[in-house]
């Protein structure tokens, strides 16, 4: 759907070239929710804007639907942008227009005369039908973002770009907006690319994720893989933030036995695996930490255990063969 081929971007600042993106290669599949996470200044906003060419790459190519759009101009560029919706951190609604008029705006731009029916449909989709005649200043942040979403969907795009769409919202509103995005992705089957600095946003809605650090993609893959087994230090920090495990982590120095972190995914999360293994092998365990959560709709569990016993290796093997991922934690 979207492909970056060795894309770079640099800016001229005070006569010197400053690199915002080092060669980036990335492919985003049709119908998926793809997340790009990074700290501010990592280049994620630039990367997102390369897709609808609000920014032009300094080198490399951008493909959308298999077509090289890197140098699109004029009518071709406007046609491309019509197929790509975008929502923003600060909503960017027209303050002089009502909610309904904001949603009708892209339709007017492209010369649709009768917009009323489509606008009604879109406002119903985002749950704002009764606010059609209000002005943006009269709405809450969450409602404004819903208007932004309705507006972005007006011209029936194939791709929706989300620029820190929930960063200005409180946690509860964030959850409802993310739910709406997931819903839209499912119902309309459109590809969503979102950028964020919160791993929790990635965990809730994304299928795949790329971690951007100082203009480079340092890690990418399915959210479950990246979330459960982060490799790069930046990714680890993001995951730790999402798990509210900031700082050095707990001290297990007084605990006897070997320490392991067990990761369960999908159906194994709810299976009585551990008790079965304990019964079969006679090992003892001590539960130190654990939780069960969801990555998008997939449940996962992580347990930190201290284990001891003669059949320890056999126990680990039995868990592994049942699909549990085991990490040996050195103290």
């Amino acid at each position: 759907m979207i492909r970056f081929a060795a894309v770079t971007k640099s800016y001229r600042v005070n006569g010197a070239d400053v690199s915002a993106l080092h060669p980036v290669d990335l492919e985003i599949a049709p119908g998926e929710v793809f997340g790009i996470i990074g700290h501010s200044g990592a280049g994620k906003s630039t990367l997102l804007r390369l897709i609808n060419l609000l920014e032009r790459p300094s080198s490399g190519q951008v493909f959308v639907s298999g077509k090289d759009v890197t140098h699109a101009e004029g009518a071709e560029l406007r046609g491309l942008r019509r197929r790509i919706g975008m929502i923003f951190q600060h909503f960017n609604l027209l303050s002089s227009r009502t909610v309904a008029q904001n949603v009708a705006f892209p339709l007017e731009l492209h010369g649709h005369a009768d917009t009323a029916g489509r606008v009604r449909e879109l406002l119903a989709l985002v749950g704002l039908s009764e606010h059609a005649d209000k002005y943006p200043a009269q709405l809450s942040g969450g409602q404004k973002q819903r208007v932004g979403i309705a507006r972005a969907l007006a011209s029936k795009p194939e791709i929706l770009l989300c620029d820190e769409a929930t960063s200005a919202l409180d946690p509860q509103t964030t959850a409802s907006v993310l739910e709406l995005l997931a819903d839209i992705n499912e119902k309309l089957g459109l590809t969503i690319v979102l950028i964020t600095h919160e791993m929790d946003v990635i965990r809730r809605v994304c299928d795949r994720v790329a971690v951007l650090d100082a203009g480079r993609v340092v890690e990418s893959g399915s959210v479950a893989d990246v979330f459960l087994h982060p490799q790069h230090p930046t990714t680890r920090r993001f995951v730790a933030e999402a798990e509210h495990e900031e700082g050095r982590g707990p001290d297990y120095s007084g605990v006897t036995g070997r320490l392991f972190r067990l990761s369960f995914r999908g159906d194994t999360t709810y299976a009585p695996l551990l008790s079965q293994v304990v019964r079969d092998t006679g090992v003892e365990y001590n539960l130190l930490a654990g939780r069960i959560e969801r990555i998008k709709s997939m449940p996962y569990g992580q347990l930190t255990l201290a284990m001891r016993g003669d059949n320890l290796e056999a126990a680990l093997e039995q868990l592994r063969s049942a699909g549990v991922d085991i990490e040996d934690i050195a103290r």
């Binding site: 609000l54 046609g79 491309l80 019509r82 960017n92 705006f105 731009l109």
Partner: peptide
Amino acid sequence: EASQAMGA
């Protein structure tokens, strides 16, 4: 910017 992104 939003208007540009909509192809205005």
